[in-house]
Simulated scan of single mutants.
Amino acid sequence: MPSASTRPVAIKIDDATRDRVKRLAEARHRTPHWLMRQAIEEYVDREEKREAFRQDTLKAWNEYQETGLHGTADEVEAWLASWGTDDESPAPEWHK
């Protein structure tokens, strides 16, 4: 999402990459600037989601280390398989 104020930022790329960006921008009827800005936004969005997932995973691992509570793969798979069916199951009870 673009912010209210923008500032120019310079990046250095090799000639081959610059030519590739230019060709792709022409094929898409966009400017190289638009294409690079779009690529950066998509990259940052993806990496923010990846980092949030990593943080959630670390939090879950730490909680498991502290409590020992868990569900087996079979329990969780059976629960997930019931999602969207008429016989949807509640989440399994976590245990040690």
Rank of each mutant, 00 (worst) to 15 (best):
H33R: 13
L58H: 07
T31H: 06
T31R: 12
W61K: 15
Q38L: 07
D15T: 11
R20D: 09
L35F: 06
L58V: 10
R46E: 11
R46T: 06
A60K: 13
D14G: 11
K12L: 02
D15H: 10
Y43Q: 03
I40C: 10
K22D: 10
D19R: 14
W61C: 08
Q55F: 14
T31G: 04
V9Y: 02
L35S: 06
A27D: 15
D14N: 14
E41P: 01
R37P: 00
Q55Y: 05
T67G: 09
D56C: 07
A16N: 08
L69M: 14
R28Q: 12
D14V: 06
D14Y: 09
E66N: 12
D19I: 02
T31E: 06
T31N: 07
K59E: 15
I13Y: 00
K49L: 12
L24N: 05
E42H: 13
D45C: 08
R28H: 09
D19S: 15
R54P: 00
R37N: 13
R30D: 03
H29R: 15
T31S: 15
E47Q: 05
T31K: 11
A39T: 14
G68W: 10
E63P: 04
G68E: 05
F53Q: 09
P8T: 04
H29T: 11
I13A: 01
R37Y: 03
T17E: 11
H33K: 09
T31L: 08
R50P: 01
L35G: 06
L69D: 15
D19N: 14
P32C: 05
A25C: 02
D56T: 01
R30E: 11
Y43D: 04
I13C: 00
V44I: 03
F53I: 08
A16C: 05
R23L: 09
Q55C: 08
H29G: 12
I40Q: 07
D19A: 15
K12H: 02
L58S: 12
I11Q: 00
Y64H: 04
R20F: 07
T31C: 10
K22C: 04
E42W: 10
D56S: 11
E51G: 03
W61Y: 13
E42T: 06
D14M: 05
K12M: 03
D56N: 13
G68N: 05
E47M: 02
K49Y: 04
K12G: 01
K59F: 14
K22F: 05
R50G: 07
A16P: 00
